[in-house]
Design a protein around this nucleic acid. Structure first.
Length: 160
DNA sequence: GCCAACGTTGGC
DNA sequence: GCCAACGTTGGC
C-alpha cells in the first residue's frame, strides 16, 4: 500500500495558506465525491502517510507543500448536511457513501513545483498528475516520485 | 472563457 | 448492459 499521496485543491476554495492558518494547521479533507478517490481515502490512507498538497485551477498549477495524514478515513459528514455545498442525499449516515481524512501541514515549500516543471523532470514520466485528462483528486505517489519531487524543492527551477 | 477528457445519469 | 446526454474538472 502506498505511503505517499497527492491531494488536489483549488486554492480559491482551500489553499495551503488556509491550511497554515487553520487551528493546529489541521483540517478535514472534505468534499471528495469520486469513487476512486473515495476508495483511497477510506481504504488506502493510514495515519503517518504523507501527501503532496497540489493547487489545481491555479496560476501556475503545481505542488505547494507536504501534509501528513493524522486521522484515517471516516465518514464525510458534509454529505449529510443539506446546507453544505457537498451535500449528497444518497449518502446515509448508517451507510456512508463518502469519506474523508484529517491532514496536518508539514511544510509549505519555499517555491511552487509547477506542473510544467514536473513534466520536465526526469523520472516523473509516469507520475499520475502529469497525465493529460487526469482528474483524480486523490492519487497515490511512488516513493521514487516522492523523493524526486522533494529533491526539486531546494533547487532552482531548471531552464526549459 | 474555451474545450478536451472524463465520470455519472437515465432511457431503453 | 448499452450508450447518448449531460455535468464537472482543470489546463490553457
Amino acid at each position: 500500500m502506498s505511503r505517499y499521496w497527492l491531494l488536489k485543491s483549488e486554492p480559491g476554495v482551500f489553499s495551503i495558506d488556509d491550511l497554515q492558518a487553520a487551528p493546529n494547521q489541521t483540517t478535514s479533507w472534505e468534499g471528495v465525491r469520486n469513487y476512486q478517490a473515495r476508495n483511497f481515502l477510506r481504504d488506502g490512507m493510514q495515519v503517518g502517510d504523507r501527501a503532496f498538497f497540489y493547487h489545481s485551477n491555479a496560476t501556475p498549477p503545481g505542488i505547494v507543500g507536504v501534509v501528513e495524514i493524522v486521522r484515517a478515513g471516516y465518514p464525510d459528514h458534509t454529505a449529510f448536511d443539506p446546507a453544505s455545498r457537498y451535500y449528497d442525499p444518497k449518502s446515509d449516515p448508517a451507510h456512508p457513501t463518502w469519506f474523508m481524512v484529517d491532514v496536518r501541514l508539514v511544510q509549505k515549500f519555499p517555491r511552487i513545483i509547477s506542473l510544467d516543471e514536473l513534466k520536465r523532470t526526469p523520472g516523473l514520466e509516469n507520475m499520475l498528475v502529469i497525465r493529460r485528462g487526469m482528474r483524480l483528486s486523490v492519487q497515490p505517489v511512488t516513493e521514487t516520485e516522492w523523493q524526486i519531487v522533494l529533491g526539486l524543492v531546494g533547487s532552482a527551477d531548471r531552464p526549459v
